[in-house]
């Protein structure tokens, strides 16, 4: 990439908007995932009795819905990211591509 083009992109408001928004989302979702997963691991390590508590009248304990919840959270968070990135952020990227005339 020629330096001139590079500088033009790096200063472009669309580029700045794209990177700012996308980074914020990516790091927020990463933080949520880490918090959820390590929260679960720390519960296992330090407060296992919480996970053994019964839910309702039957045999189900809190650990199972929570565990399945972590799995569903992982799927949901990746879904949110794809939805934002392949929609809004890719529109910004496409606008940027048009502007600089770079190949897709």
């Amino acid at each position: 990439m020629p330096t001139e083009l590079l500088e033009r992109i790096a200063r472009d408001p669309h580029y700045l908007e794209l990177t700012r928004k996308r980074s914020r989302l990516a790091w927020t979702l990463t933080a949520i995932m880490l918090a959820v997963y390590y929260g679960f691991i720390l519960l296992i390590a330090f407060a296992p009795d919480v996970l053994r508590q019964k839910v309702g009248e039957g045999a189900t304990t809190l650990g199972f819905p929570m565990g399945i919840g972590v799995i569903l959270t992982a799927i949901l968070l990746t879904g949110i990211y794809v939805w934002k990135a392949n929609g809004e952020y890719d529109r910004l990227t496409a606008r940027l591509h048009e502007k600089v005339g770079g190949q897709p």
Partner: peptide, 11 residues
């Protein structure tokens, strides 16, 4: 240059 390419796919 690497950052711009990684963010935009240009190049």
């Amino acid at each position: 240059a690497q950052l711009v390419r990684s963010q935009t796919g240009i190049g």
